[in-house]
């Protein structure tokens, strides 16, 4: 359990979110209400389960709030999220963003720059299952992801980790792509 103060905030947040959902989102974004009559037959509508779920969250959060207010102060004092969380997740998110962008765009850009030239333009869709184009995005993006995250966690950059990352990406290509004709590595299914 977290500290009492944190638990109270969590409970309050859950109550507000659940009430807004139950009173605004669910009624406005469902075609049929919780109970409706159609051809003189009473039916359960599409709004029923989400409404029950949201109400359930609100009720449980209220009980949790009351139980938390009654309990002794907890032993765990540290906040669940602190400045260190942001210090890690900001660079982590940047690495993931760059990795995904590389994964998505590197193949088509490489094809545009270095692909076969001729009278008819070749699209990436035509080449998405052809070596080496199909591996460029996954290879570059995957390497950046594995190497970047490993280096971030260790706080240093090393050649051995770069080699390990390359081998890992190669191993995943061997597992996912080489034995199977039907499987498309990311991002080739999108083109």
């Amino acid at each position: 359990m977290l500290s009492r103060r944190n638990e109270v905030w969590i409970a309050l947040l859950c109550i507000v979110a659940a009430l807004v959902t139950a009173m605004v989102w669910v009624p406005l974004d469902s075609e049929t209400p919780p109970i409706y009559t159609f051809r003189r037959q009473i039916n359960i509508g599409d709004a029923m389960l989400p409404l029950v779920s949201a109400t359930g969250i609100a009720i449980c959060a209220v009980i949790h709030l009351l139980l938390t207010l009654r309990r002794e102060p907890a032993t765990e004092r540290s906040a669940p999220l602190d400045i260190h969380t942001g210090s890690f997740f900001l660079p982590f998110a940047a690495i993931m963003l760059v990795s995904c962008m590389l994964m998505y765009w590197a193949g088509p850009i490489a094809l545009a720059l270095f692909g076969p030239t001729g009278e008819e333009a070749v699209t990436y869709r035509q080449m998405r299952a052809a070596f080496p184009w199909k591996y460029i995005g996954y290879g570059l993006g995957g390497f950046t992801m594995v190497f970047g995250v490993t280096s971030l966690i260790e706080g240093r950059i090393s050649a051995s980790r770069a080699l390990t990352s390359m081998l890992a990406v190669l191993a995943l290509i061997l597992v996912f792509d080489v034995p199977f004709d039907t499987i498309l590595l990311p991002p080739n299914g999108d083109y």
């Binding site: 469902s30 389960l49 969250i57």
Partner: peptide, 29 residues
Amino acid sequence: ASPMKGMIAAFLGLFIATIGTGQDSYARL
């Protein structure tokens, strides 16, 4: 450690499962 938090998690799972499903022509939520 907290049954109420477990129940909130379960209700949240139910709620998210309802997104885009249902019997009506409009995909709820």
